[in-house]
Design a protein around this nucleic acid. Structure first.
Length: 252
DNA sequence: AGCACA
């Protein structure tokens, strides 16, 4: 009852997730038809803003309704974990993930130029458009020169801040499961290991993936190395591929 | 390669 909000629960804090180190904001209460460009416009003038990632959860219009006339407001809080998805070389200043069932007609929101008008910026038309182009170009320049892939030597110092590889986590991400793999089947195997907490299977268009949570990182690590590439009866495309999950599984 | 549960 008198339980602190989840974002203060130390359970969610991983070794690299001291709250002070979180530099990602979680924004909720967005309308279903929100565009990535709108989110980008919200933040692009803010110092230190890197990029935004918009995810349509498929939850549609549940809960809070965002509507200017209804006076509802965006809710912004510190994210539980930093955004880890790296921008693809070809992508622009924002990233869109659309998990909604129906692909509505306006889903061509990737990057490129936007004809955005600055609603909150009274600075005038020329500024809005000109400096806007500039900003986009600045953000994009790391796309054009492509520090992620090409000329690795030249960009090493800039890059190492960003990609530190897989971070150890007490939750495992398990992929390359056969289409018929069941939670039960996987649980049979995992529950033999000490510290096993719980398992969740998600099927994302065809192939299932699983998240397995353990008490301790070391226990998860042991399972990962033990079971890496191993076959289940249901496996049909080779052994399981196991990695640390990007974020720890939510409590219950 | 594919990382959710808010």
């Amino acid at each position: 009852m008198a339980r602190p909000p989840y974002e203060y629960d130390p359970y969610y804090l991983q070794p690299d997730q001291d709250r002070n180190l979180i530099n990602t904001l979680f924004v909720s209460g967005l309308p279903d038809d929100v565009k990535a460009r709108e989110i980008h416009n919200l933040f692009r003038r803010r110092a230190g803003f890197d990029y935004c990632q918009l995810k349509y959860t498929g939850r549609g219009n549940q809960g809070v309704k965002f509507d200017p006339q209804a006076g509802s407001v965006l809710h912004i809080e510190l994210a539980r974990s930093n955004s880890r998805r790296k921008r693809k070389p070809g992508s622009g200043p924002y990233v869109v993930i659309d998990n909604r069932i129906k692909a509505s007609a306006n889903t061509q929101e990737t990057s490129s130029d936007d004809g955005d008008s600055d609603t909150e910026e009274p600075s005038g038309a020329e500024d809005a458009d000109a400096s806007n182009k500039d900003e986009l170009k600045t953000v994009k320049s790391d796309t054009v020169q492509d520090p992620e892939n090409s000329v690795p030597a030249a960009n090493e110092q800039l890059e190492r801040t960003i990609d530190e590889g897989a971070q150890a986590c007490s939750t495992l991400f398990i992929a390359n499961l056969g289409p018929n793999c069941t939670e039960y089947e996987l649980k049979q195997v995992l529950s033999k290991y000490p510290g096993f907490n719980m398992l969740k299977i998600r099927t994302k268009g065809g192939m299932p993936v699983a998240f397995a949570d353990f008490e301790q990182v070391e226990q998860a690590t042991k399972v990962m190395t033990d079971l890496q590439s191993s076959l289940l009866p249901s496996s049909d495309r080779g052994g399981m591929h196991i990695e640390y999950a990007r974020s720890k599984m939510r409590k219950p």
